[in-house]
Amino acid sequence: MSAELAVFLVLAALAVAGAVSLIVQRHPIHSALSLIVVMVSLAGLYLLLGAEFISAVQIIVYAGAIMVLFVFVIMLLNAGIEERTNLSRMARYVGLPLGVLLMALLAYAIGRGASSQAPAAAGPAPTKTLAMMLFQDFVFPFELTSILILIAILGALVLAKRES
């Protein structure tokens, strides 16, 4: 138990540190690299929870595909070091308190729920359960997503096509 806790604490600290670094870094590439740290430590947390499939997907999709996309876009735009601006008045006096309020509210709601609800029982093979969910119970939205992606591709074509 204590070893598990130790791993959790290390991964959680890494995730939070990565997230803070993501915002604080001035160069977009450094921010992107910090994001990878967040993704990988989240993958570790999922593994700790016994969700090895989600963990693998996290690495392949987020740390792999999506990050490559981010880095590509940053390189294509040739983004340099950001200029640092002071927080706008709106952000300081409305945004920050609202953010803190949202966090407190979520912490309160989750905290209240945590005591009353047992964690979802992990079956003998979570991946199999997930597969049944994805390809049987939720096969319709799963297939519908392909049409959604088709719309996005069509949209990219419309917006990026050269004028004839």
Binding site: I147, L148, G155, V158, L159
Partner: peptide
């Protein structure tokens, strides 16, 4: 009558709308 399905439908309609709104490039 399920929220994930409703969400995918919402996204299909929204993304198509965004692109149609920008159709006069």
């Amino acid at each position: 009558q399920e929220l994930v399905t409703a969400f995918i439908g919402l996204e299909m309609s929204s993304i198509a709308s965004y692109i149609l709104a920008s159709y006069r490039r």
